[in-house]
Amino acid sequence: MTEPVIEAIDAVKFLGEGAGRVQALKGVSLAVGGGELTLLMGPSGSGKTTLLSILGCMLTPTSGTVRVGGRATADAGPEELAKIRRENIGFVFQSYHLFPTLNALDNVRLALDVRGENSHRAMQKSKEALARVGLALKMASYPSELSGGEQQRVAIARAIVSNPAILLADEPTAALDSENGHAIMEVLAEIAREQSRGVLVVTHDPRIVPFSDRIVSIEDGKIIGDKRPADGEARADKSGTAAAERTDKPSRKDRKRKP
């Protein structure tokens, strides 16, 4: 793995108060580097989303350290955390979270607009990002005019348009059928592979295992497994599910051989 882009060291997180207080993370350490697609898998309530929120600087750990691009976030206030997010992290959400009143191009442009980027340049970059995810012809479409898969592609374009070091994706295929889910994972894998970004995907979906370089398993707020599928053990093809069922260890190299 290259230098970690984002890492949590011994992160502990308590959620709730009083009798409802629960420990969502029990000393989790995880580092994600550039150029690899990591899956964070675990059952509901295992702490996946809490860890993702902490790595994404949306939640602060009760104790432990989070570093983004080598910078510790412990003392950062909400505005500083927002700045870290917009400069380093792209987000892809399960339910897309597109703005229904803006077309695809403006939805993508928004990620640059919040950075105060020049309007003309932002427009150009947004068009390129949409073209990269295969939506060059749908720039003027509104979310309601797009399929679920297309909406998720817009969300991915929004996440990568500002050229973040890492992409954090929360169940990006959960709301999609297998064909669209497959297509989305291809896009994410390509982003990791070709743009050397770190991509961390939280998922329940075993069908997307073949796209991963690394699988981290979490349960009861602890990491219980961290493996890198060995070369040649699996191949991601158009029917990635079958490959995943044979073995959960496809390699990025295998995916590169994909037609």
Binding site: E79, A82, K83, R85, I89, H97, F99, A159
Partner: peptide, 16 residues
Amino acid sequence: LNEFATLRAIGSSGGY
């Protein structure tokens, strides 16, 4: 609120 939270999540400042 969901949209404003999304803005915040993608790094928008409070001022924006």
